[in-house]
Simulated assay, not measured.
Amino acid sequence: MPYKEREINKMYYTMGEVSAMFDVNQSLIRYYEKEFDILQPKKNKKGNRYFTPEDVENLKIIFHLIRDKGFTLAGAKEHLKKNSNDTKDTQSMITTLENLKKFLLEVRDQM
Rank of each mutant, 00 (worst) to 15 (best):
I61H: 07
I38V: 14
H79D: 00
S92M: 10
K102C: 01
T72V: 02
M11H: 14
Q40F: 08
K77N: 05
K82P: 00
D109E: 15
K34Y: 01
L97A: 14
T87F: 03
Y12F: 15
Y3G: 01
Q91V: 05
G47E: 03
K34G: 04
K45D: 11
K45R: 11
P41T: 05
L97W: 04
M1D: 10
D89Q: 15
K81M: 12
F36R: 04
L104Y: 10
S27V: 09
Q91P: 01
K10D: 05
G47L: 05
N44L: 08
I38D: 01
P53C: 09
L59A: 01
E35A: 07
E78I: 10
E7P: 00
K88W: 01
M111A: 11
I62W: 04
R108P: 00
A20D: 14
G16M: 04
L28H: 06
M15P: 01
N83P: 00
H64V: 04
L105R: 09
N48H: 15
D37K: 15
D37P: 00
S84L: 05
S27G: 06
D109K: 02
T14M: 09
Y13N: 03
K43Y: 02
I66E: 04
T95M: 08
E35Q: 13
S27A: 14
F103E: 13
S84C: 07
A20E: 14
R6A: 13
I61L: 14
K4W: 08
D109Q: 08
E7K: 15
V107H: 05
N58C: 04
T52G: 04
K46A: 14
E57S: 12
K88H: 13
E78W: 09
K81D: 10
F22K: 04
E33Y: 06
Y32K: 05
